[in-house]
Computed example of a mutant assay.
Amino acid sequence: MFTGMPAGAAARVSDSPLHAAAARGDVPAIGRLLRAGAGKEARDASGSTALLVATRANRVEAARALIEAGADVNAKDRIGDSPYLYAGARGHLEVLRMTLAHGADLRSTNRYGGTALIPAAERGHVDTVKTLVEAGVAVDHVNRLGWTALLEAVILGDGGERHRKIVAILLEAGADPNLADRDGVTPLQHARARGYREIERALRAAGGH
Rank of each mutant, 00 (worst) to 15 (best):
D158Y: 04
V126I: 13
E134G: 04
G4P: 00
Y196H: 10
V139C: 07
V129F: 07
D15T: 12
H141L: 06
G184P: 02
L145E: 14
K165H: 11
Q189L: 10
A9F: 08
N143L: 10
E41D: 15
R194M: 12
A38Q: 03
T131D: 06
T148Y: 08
K165V: 03
K130Y: 02
G91T: 09
L93T: 06
T128M: 08
T109G: 00
D77A: 01
R201C: 00
L51F: 05
A121Q: 02
A9E: 14
D81Q: 14
D72E: 09
G31M: 02
A45C: 00
L18T: 03
G208F: 02
G159R: 08
R107C: 03
L171R: 07
L33K: 06
A71D: 11
E161C: 00
M1P: 13
K130P: 00
G88C: 12
G37R: 06
V73I: 13
L132T: 03
G160T: 09
R97Q: 15
H141Q: 09
G37C: 11
D127Y: 09
H125V: 01
N58Q: 13
G136F: 11
Y84F: 15
L33Q: 03
I155H: 08
A63K: 04
K40T: 10
G91K: 05
A50Q: 04
V167S: 08
A36C: 12
V60P: 00
L100A: 02
R59S: 06
E172I: 01
P119D: 01
R144A: 14
R35D: 14
H163K: 09
N178S: 11
D140E: 08
L156N: 13
D15E: 15
V142I: 15
E134S: 13
Y86C: 00
D44W: 04
R43A: 13
L156D: 06
V126G: 04
L33R: 01
R182L: 14
L145G: 09
R59M: 14
T128K: 02
R201V: 04
A62R: 02
S82K: 05
Y196A: 08
A11S: 14
